[in-house]
Computed example of a mutant assay.
Amino acid sequence: MSSRFDNFEEKREEKIRKAFKERDWNEIKSADSWAIFKVIAEFVEGFEKLSKIGPCVSVFGSARTPSDNPHYIMAEEISAKLVRHGYGVITGGGPGIMEAANKGASSENGKSVGLCIKLPFEAKGNIYIDPDKMIMFDYFFVRKVMFTKYSQGFVVLPGGFGTLDELFEAFTLIQTIKIGRFPIVLVGKAFWEGLIDWIKNTLLEKYNYISREDLNLFYLVDDATEAVKVIDDFYSKYLLTPNY
């Protein structure tokens, strides 16, 4: 029996072979036209389902975090507090930190949104998402538009490549003024301090690839109360409005 890793490698090799396969114009036109309609359909469903959810905060973090991990417990606590303070919660809809955040929101009868992505190893949302607020995406880029368009803040717990992708997407869009300025809260000083040191010492001081003001794009906290306070304090000065 082949392992899950072997199956992934087969899929990766299949995509590489497909990329080099010669196709005639009719094949290209047909495939691209179908992809365009699929992308449009995902945008339409996302806009329809999320346009009326009200102020929400997205919570990001690893799908691999077990339920007895302190980060899982922290995500659940933060989300429950967010709901008590008047926010809904949006996650990527999967297990781990995402499940914890949806669980915390659901425990307080708050809005619990799941923007799920179809993956070979993760094909359904967690059980704590509101049934009418779960959306399944094929395309990462459409999903990321929904996160930034309908979130009034990001709370980012420890995670892997996907979490970092979402974090730096938010940094870039705010830095280039493509979306409104909203608070980005990094939770877990021990986890994030190495990355922050690299941003300061390498990106800024050594290479001057960012501005010193860019260091103000995020907040670093270590507990649930402080994380929610950052969101509250930020919006005590601003009206809650969509980012696009």
Rank of each mutant, 00 (worst) to 15 (best):
R84D: 10
G86D: 14
G86Q: 12
G86C: 13
Y87Q: 08
Y87E: 02
Y87M: 09
Y87S: 06
G88C: 09
G88L: 05
G88A: 13
G88Y: 03
V89P: 00
V89F: 01
V89H: 02
I90F: 01
I90N: 04
T91S: 09
G92C: 08
G92P: 03
G92A: 11
G93R: 01
G93C: 02
G93Y: 02
G93I: 01
G93P: 02
G94C: 07
G94I: 00
G94N: 05
G94K: 01
G94T: 07
P95C: 03
P95S: 15
P95W: 12
P95I: 08
P95V: 08
I97T: 10
I97G: 10
M98A: 04
M98R: 00
E99Y: 00
E99V: 03
E99R: 08
E99T: 00
E99N: 12
A100I: 01
A101P: 11
A101H: 11
A101T: 02
A101Y: 07
A101E: 03
N102P: 05
N102C: 00
K103I: 02
K103F: 08
K103P: 06
K103C: 09
K103H: 14
G104T: 10
G104H: 07
G104S: 06
A105I: 04
A105Y: 13
A105V: 10
A105F: 11
S106R: 15
S106T: 12
S106V: 01
S107P: 00
S107R: 09
S107L: 03
E108D: 07
E108P: 01
N109C: 12
N109F: 11
N109L: 12
N109G: 13
G110M: 02
G110F: 02
G110A: 02
G110W: 09
K111F: 03
K111A: 07
K111S: 11
K111E: 07
S112T: 04
S112G: 07
V113E: 01
V113L: 05
V113D: 03
V113G: 01
V113Q: 03
V113W: 01
V113F: 02
G114A: 06
G114E: 08
G114I: 07
G114M: 08
G114C: 06
L115S: 13
L115D: 08
L115H: 06
L115N: 09
C116L: 13
C116I: 14
C116G: 14
I117V: 13
K118A: 15
K118W: 15
L119E: 13
L119G: 11
F121N: 13
F121E: 12
E122W: 10
E122S: 15
A123N: 14
A123W: 14
A123K: 15
A123Q: 15
K124Y: 13
K124R: 15
K124N: 14
K124E: 15
